[in-house]
């Protein structure tokens, strides 16, 4: 086996995993605290990418564009919370799913109206556009390293936020006991809106980070949301720690499966059979993994404490 390729693909897997974590963390945060299923979370990810793409052209700098786009995506999240989500909290999960399903149509078509049907390529600054040699013979794009760095920093930041701040304390208390938080005199509506906006911002950030690699496109939201769901199901819905580890597992398995599964299959089946079955199996690999994990642990790897 080619070890250079293995290292490069492992890093790619980690990068994908961290991006998934950014999306999944918002999803799991909103579910854990608000008990709200947001199908449109992927659309916010997509909107983040488009806002950032436009701003990059306006201000001429990708990183500056991200800084401006972040509060804007948070505002989009806040708007969704005020206009739709808030009115559905008291309903069952089916209504959440259907309501946000309608919202996806609205958001996706609006983006189509504003930005047109084509995708947007987002140019990187020159210093990020190159490659670095991290070991002898192992060369990866600088930008992917940046994504890994940002992903880890955000994960660390969320860990700090949830475990060591007043907001984090409210979040943890809100997840396990809503009545108590209200009794403490905390404005729970304000807390909910803040959490929703934070989740939107995280999804938006993921969309912004991926856009220079894949370009911003309308279909990107629908593609990521399913994988993000798989991540939080495997991790345990509502668990931040679960989202982190499950995202890395999924990122690695998906990336490595697509690159190496045919080689592995060739070890015990004919080359032809391996080449036919490997693509089918590798595209289903994360779902098979999910099925196996759930068959053993229906509540996921890190189920949050019973509320």
């Amino acid at each position: 086996m080619d070890y250079t390729l293995l290292i490069v693909q492992t890093l790619n897997g980690v990068q994908l995993g961290l991006l998934l974590f950014l999306v999944a963390s918002g999803l799991t945060l909103v579910f854990g605290i608000l008990d709200f299923v947001n199908l449109a979370h992927g659309s916010i990810y997509m909107v983040g990418a488009f806002i950032c793409a436009s701003l990059t052209f306006v201000v001429g700098n990708f990183l500056l564009a991200i800084l401006i786009a972040l509060p804007l995506t948070a505002a989009v999240g806040y708007g969704i919370e005020r206009l739709l989500a808030r009115h559905l909290y008291a309903r069952d999960h089916l209504d959440h799913v259907l309501g946000t399903f309608g919202l996806i149509l609205v958001i996706d078509t609006s983006v189509h109206l504003i930005w047109g049907p084509e995708g947007f390529a987002v140019p990187l600054p020159a210093w990020l556009d190159g490659q670095v040699e991290i070991f002898t013979g192992v060369v990866i794009p600088t930008y992917r390293l940046l994504i890994i760095g940002v992903g880890l920093a955000v994960a660390g930041g969320l860990y700090w936020l949830v475990n060591f701040t007043r907001l984090g304390m409210l979040i943890r208390a809100g997840a396990s006991n809503r009545v108590m938080v209200s009794a403490l005199g905390i404005d729970i509506q304000w807390l909910f809106a803040l959490v929703f906006a934070l989740g939107a911002m995280l999804a938006g950030l993921a969309g912004m980070l991926i856009s220079p690699i894949t370009e911003a496109s309308i279909s990107m939201g629908g593609e990521i949301i399913i994988t993000a769901f798989v991540v939080i199901i495997i991790g345990g819905i509502g668990s931040m720690k679960g989202a982190f580890f499950a995202a890395l597992i999924i990122g690695l398995i998906d990336t490595l499966g697509r690159s190496f599964l045919d080689d592995i299959f060739k070890l015990f089946m004919s080359s032809d059979a391996a080449e036919t079955s490997a693509p089918a199996i590798s595209s289903m690999l994360i779902y098979i993994l999910m099925a196996v994990i759930l068959a053993v642990r229906p509540q996921g790897l890190f189920p949050p404490k019973v509320r």
Binding site: F229, Y287, P298
Partner: peptide, 25 residues
């Protein structure tokens, strides 16, 4: 074996599993 929101998401994920299966043939 699961319930509530887990059930919603898992059935969705299994549906997508079938989707990717046919997509890859």
């Amino acid at each position: 074996r699961t319930k509530g929101v887990y059930f919603i998401m898992i059935t969705m994920a299994f549906g997508m599993m079938a989707y990717y299966f046919f997509l890859s043939i």
